[in-house]
Amino acid sequence: MLELNLNMKLLEMCSKCGACYSICPSCTHLPGYDPRQVVADIVQGKFEKWLSSSSIWQCLECHYCLEMCYQHYGFENAMTALRTIATKRGLNPPQVKRGWDMFAKTGKLGEPALPARKKFGLPEPSKSGGEELKKVLDALKDRRGKGHH
C-alpha cells in the first residue's frame, strides 16, 4: 500500500452522491469546481483532460468530504491521485516543484530564521534529520528500482 491506489467501486458511488457538497469549501466558494464530474470521468477512464486543469489543485485537503462520506472515502483521494499523475507528467503548478525540490534537498520546507530567533531570545534550533531522511528516501528509490511497487 505504499503506492497510491484508487478504489473504483467506491468512486462510482462517489460520482453519484454529493453528500459532501454543501460543506466542501471549494464546492461552495469556487465557481466551476465540481469534483463529482471529475470522479465520474475517472470511473469512465476519461481522466486525461483533468490533468492540466487548475481544478484538481483546488481541493483544499480539509478532509470534510472524508468525514461526510457514507463510504468513509471522500473525493480527496481522487484529487490526490490526479495530482500525482499530473506531477509525473510535469503538469504541476511551478510552486509545487519548488517546494518538492526544497524538501528533497533539505528534508524541510525552510530553515529557522536565525536573526529573529536571536531577537526573541529563542534557543539554538535543534539539529535537522535531513541527512538521515535522505538516506531513507534513497533506500526507497533503490527498492523501487528493484521492482517493488
Partner: peptide, 12 residues
C-alpha cells in the same frame, strides 16, 4: 506537508 509531498509521492 501533505498537500505537497503526498501529492507528489505517497511513499515518501
Amino acid at each position: 506537508e501533505k498537500s505537497l509531498v503526498n501529492n507528489v509521492d505517497h511513499a515518501s
